[in-house]
Structures are given as structure tokens and as C-alpha cells.
């Protein structure tokens, strides 16, 4: 796992037959070309996501044509639309079910901050309150090109990513994000972490 700059030089007679790269780079190269988004439409932006997958913008060119409805077969969650409080538990549950390494794109104003509906009572103020977000796309809705631009931004990010930094390959158990519950309002357990641990109910909630 060395950096690209520190690779040994290839003798001139072998150039063209041998290529040296780092494991990180190889991994990033493979991942860039096989990122599978989840078929997960929330609201208006979902239609622009579908348009991006359709014949005009055709994200199959990036190896992403297989939009999997099952989170277990996907590694990119495009939060395409408004995350309402009622939907928040399901969004987090789907995210937790995705295999690592996984990425989240917040598409559109609603997913970023709640957008036009932020001031209302039923909308989460941005999906990053619930999940770690990798790329944000402003716009309402962003054009399909903007979504593709976000994919490219994500690809650019892979190149700087090192396997040892990816959480999934590190030691320890990852519980995932605690799934919020519906009380008198949305209950985010992280807010009540010490309390819940004391009560020993954390497991019950995460299950």
C-alpha cells in the first residue's frame, strides 16, 4: 500500500507490458467502474435520477446501470428527495443494510437541508442529520447532468481514498447508525445515548 509517487521505476524494455500501481489505486479503479446505486426514489428528485438512468444521460456509461432495489446489493445511496420524519427510520435502516464501503449522495435542496419544506413540521432538516453524506448536489431538482457531476466528484474522491481508512476494513464492530424511532416527534437515539445505555435498551432499539 504505497503511494503512487513512491513506486519504483519500470525499466524501459518492460514499459508497455508492465504497469505498476498501488493496491489502493487498483481498488479505486475497480470501484469507480462498478458503483451500484440503490433504486431508492423519495420525491421529485427521483425523477431526475430516473432521467439520468434513462437513454439520454445513461449512467450505464459509468457502470452504474444496475439500480438495485435491494440495499444489500447496492453501495451508493442517492437520497433523491425529501426525507420526512416518518420515512427517516426506513432511510437509516436501508443505509445500515448496505454493505461497506458505502456512499451517500444528498441530491437536491430537500436532502441537503429540507429545502423548501424545511420550515415545516414533518421534514428532517437534511439527511446529514441522520447519515454521513459524501457528496451534496444543490438544486431543486438538480439536472441529470448535475447528478452525473456528483458521481464524478465521488469518483475523484475514490482516488484519494485508502483502503485502510475505510471503516469496513478496520477492526471492531460497526453497529451502524441507530435507527430513529417515532415518538411524539422523531427520536434520534444518539441524542439520548447516555440515557439509553444506562437503561440497557440500546440493543433492543438497534435490532
Amino acid at each position: 500500500m504505497r503511494d503512487v509517487e513512491n513506486l519504483p521505476e519500470i525499466p524501459p524494455e518492460l514499459q508497455g507490458t508492465v504497469k505498476l500501481t498501488t493496491f489502493d489505486q487498483l481498488f479505486a479503479w475497480a470501484r469507480k467502474r462498478s458503483l451500484w446505486p440503490m433504486l431508492f426514489g423519495l420525491a421529485c428528485c427521483a425523477f431526475e435520477m430516473i432521467a439520468a438512468a434513462a437513454s439520454r444521460y445513461d449512467i450505464a456509461r459509468f457502470g452504474m446501470e444496475i439500480m438495485r432495489p435491494s440495499p444489500r446489493q447496492a453501495d451508493l445511496l442517492i437520497v433523491s428527495g425529501t426525507v420526512t420524519k416518518k420515512m427517516a427510520p426506513q432511510v437509516v435502516r436501508l443505509y445500515n443494510q448496505m454493505p461497506e464501503p458505502k456512499y451517500v449522495i444528498a441530491m437536491g435542496a430537500c436532502a441537503i437541508s429540507g429545502g423548501p419544506f424545511k420550515e415545516g413540521y414533518a421534514v428532517v432538516s437534511g439527511v446529514d442529520k441522520l447519515l454521513p453524506v459524501d457528496v451534496y448536489i444543490p438544486g431543486c431538482p438538480p439536472r441529470p447532468e448535475a447528478l452525473i457531476h456528483a458521481f464524478l466528484a465521488l469518483h475523484a474522491r475514490f482516488e484519494h481514498e485508502r483502503i485502510r481508512d475505510i471503516k469496513a476494513y478496520q477492526k471492531g464492530v460497526d453497529d451502524g447508525v441507530p435507527i430513529p424511532a417515532l415518538g411524539p416527534d422523531l427520536v434520534d437515539w444518539r441524542r439520548f445515548e447516555p440515557l439509553m445505555e444506562a437503561a440497557g435498551e440500546k440493543e433492543a432499539v438497534h435490532g
Binding site: 413540521y121 428532517v124 424511532a181 417515532l182 415518538g183 416527534d185 427520536v187 434520534d188 441524542r191
Partner: peptide, 22 residues
């Protein structure tokens, strides 16, 4: 007050609430 779009009634306890009610 909670720095988010969340508000709970006064005296509400997250442990006592029955989440299956929804």
C-alpha cells in the same frame, strides 16, 4: 432549542414511551 427540527412535550421520557404505538 434542540438545534434541530425536533420538539418533545414537557416531561416526556424516551424510555417510558411505547414506540409500537405508531
Amino acid at each position: 432549542p434542540l438545534k434541530d427540527n425536533i420538539r418533545y412535550p414537557e416531561g416526556w421520557s424516551p424510555q417510558a414511551w411505547d414506540y409500537d404505538e405508531a
